[in-house]
Simulated scan of single mutants.
Amino acid sequence: MTDNNTKKEAPPKRPQCAFFIYKQEVYQQVKDANPGKKMTDITKIISEQYKQLAKDKIDQYEQKYKDSKAIFEKEKKAYEDVHGKIKNERKKKKDDTKVTKKPQNKKQKKQASEEDDSSEDDD
Rank of each mutant, 00 (worst) to 15 (best):
K31A: 08
E80D: 05
C17G: 13
E80G: 03
V82C: 01
K76L: 09
Q49L: 11
I42S: 04
Q29C: 02
M39G: 12
I45V: 13
K66L: 14
S47Q: 14
L53W: 00
K85H: 00
Y50S: 03
T43H: 12
K66F: 10
D32C: 00
K64W: 05
E25R: 05
E48V: 12
E62M: 05
S68V: 03
H83I: 00
E75I: 08
E25G: 01
T40H: 13
T43E: 14
P35R: 06
D81R: 04
A78H: 07
K76Y: 01
G84C: 01
D41V: 11
I46P: 07
E80I: 04
V26C: 00
K55I: 05
Q49R: 12
A54R: 04
A78K: 12
Y65C: 07
K55P: 06
D32K: 07
K57G: 00
A18Q: 03
K74T: 15
I21R: 04
Q60A: 14
Q63P: 02
K57N: 06
V26H: 00
T43W: 08
Y65E: 13
T40K: 15
K51F: 03
E25H: 03
I42A: 08
I58K: 09
L53V: 01
K76N: 03
Y22A: 02
A18K: 05
S47M: 13
K55N: 05
C17T: 15
T40D: 13
D56F: 02
I42N: 09
K77M: 10
A70M: 14
Q28V: 07
G36W: 08
K51Q: 10
K57W: 00
Y22H: 02
M39W: 09
H83G: 01
Q60P: 02
M39R: 13
Q52N: 13
K66H: 10
K64S: 10
D41A: 15
K37G: 02
A18N: 01
K23Q: 06
K55E: 09
D32I: 04
M39Y: 14
I71N: 12
K64P: 06
K66G: 05
E73P: 04
K69S: 10
T40G: 14
I21L: 11
A70Y: 11
N34M: 05
I45Y: 08
A70G: 11
A70S: 15
E25L: 02
Q52F: 06
Y65K: 11
K74V: 15
I46W: 06
E73Q: 12
N34H: 12
Q63L: 07
K77Q: 13
A33L: 10
K23H: 02
Q60L: 11
K69P: 03
K23R: 08
V26N: 01
V82H: 03
S68R: 09
Q29D: 09
V82Q: 08
A18D: 07
T40V: 12
I46S: 06
D59M: 08
D32S: 04
Y50F: 14
D32G: 02
K31M: 07
D67R: 10
E62R: 11
K23E: 05
T40I: 12
D59K: 10
Y61P: 01
Q63N: 10
D67T: 14
A33H: 05
D67F: 08
G84R: 00
Q29G: 04
C17H: 14
K76S: 03
K37W: 04
K57H: 02
D32E: 09
I71K: 15
S47A: 15
N34P: 06
